[in-house]
Amino acid sequence: MSQVPAPQDPADDGPDDEPVPMMQSLIDNPFLLLFLGVAMPTVLYIVWGVMEIVGIPLAK
């Protein structure tokens, strides 16, 4: 006979006490992701690209 899990009492705070894995807590923070999602392309694409363009010697 298959085991049917007992319905969980909504008032039971048990699962809330379980520690949340670190990676999950990072991914659950939309503002941290927002920072990373803006900082990465800003540095790797825009800042790096602009530095290369600024470094092109001017024609004389």
Partner: peptide
């Protein structure tokens, strides 16, 4: 999705 957040925009190049 996290890979999208970190790297997708760089394809602009």
């Amino acid at each position: 999705f996290v890979l999208y957040i970190l790297f997708l925009q760089l394809a602009s190049a």
